[in-house]
């Protein structure tokens, strides 16, 4: 019998295959994310010191907002022909369904983040990629967290009529610790100090960044364990 991971992989691959064919979710998320960056460019002054303070927040708000669109639509797709029922009826651990959806949503949120982060860097001349590998790690952990927490509640709300309104209302409070950790980790990587000429130069605060990265990792892990525990009871009426 195939393991949970294999079956989750099959479900995730099915989702990604559908998305590669329709490109509906990714285009919507990317367009919305890009739109937010454009709005930020009008709303925030592009001064070097302000940019470093504001960019982490811009990145994480963009990830959260476009991520919510992706999560909602990914689960709506399972509602259209009642395919979620079919997945839950399959003789596989129901956790594999959850895990598969979370993997595919992580990939979507990650892809959109990797489009929006360079846009933010471009529009604000922000030094986002000076510590690119660590920033990538922060974004991966953040995307996984958004997908894991979002998948649990999106699956629960699948049969609720006002799910589009309820999902962000339920999701965002639970994502607050993730945002705090994500923005702090990003801000720590963007820390700058003035040199002797008074020009700001990058001076990443690695201990702080690592602290928040570990926090992100633990938060993801905690919700993963909690999700494994409660998912089945939430999706069965």
């Amino acid at each position: 019998m195939a393991s949970i991971v294999t079956q989750a992989g099959r479900i995730a691959w099915k989702d990604l295959r559908i998305e590669l064919r329709s490109r509906e979710i990714i285009y919507t998320m990317a367009f919305f994310g890009a739109l937010l960056v454009v709005i930020y460019s009008f709303a925030f002054p592009a001064k070097a010191d302000l940019v470093r303070a504001a960019v982490p927040g811009m990145l994480w708000v963009t990830m959260a907002f476009s991520g919510t669109i992706g999560i909602g639509r990914a689960f709506d797709r399972e509602r259209e022909n009642d395919t979620m029922r079919a997945l839950l009826l399959a003789p596989i651990p129901r956790l594999a369904v959850f895990f598969g959806k979370a993997i595919s949503i992580t990939a979507l949120v990650l892809a959109v983040s990797l489009v929006c982060a360079p846009l933010i860097a471009l529009f604000f001349n922000a030094p986002l990629f000076e510590e690119a590998p660590m920033l990538l790690l922060v974004i991966v952990l953040g995307s996984a967290g958004i997908a894991v927490i979002g998948s649990v509640f999106a699956a629960t709300l699948l049969k609720v009529r006002s799910r589009d309104v309820l999902l962000p209302v339920i999701l965002y409070p639970l994502l607050v610790p993730l945002f705090v950790a994500g923005t702090n980790a990003t801000a720590a990587l963007l820390t700058a100090s003035p040199n002797i000429d008074g020009v700001l130069v990058s001076d990443p605060n690695f201990p702080a960044a690592w602290y928040w990265i570990q926090f992100l990792g633990f938060y993801d892990l905690a919700f993963l364990v909690l999700s494994f525990w409660i998912f089945e009871s939430l999706v069965i009426e």
Binding site: R85, A86, A90
Partner: peptide, 16 residues
């Protein structure tokens, strides 16, 4: 669950 076949008004199939 392995032994259950479900046929409903909805097709339970993916449109894409």
């Amino acid at each position: 669950r392995r032994e259950i076949g479900l046929l409903a008004h909805a097709s339970l199939c993916y449109g894409e």
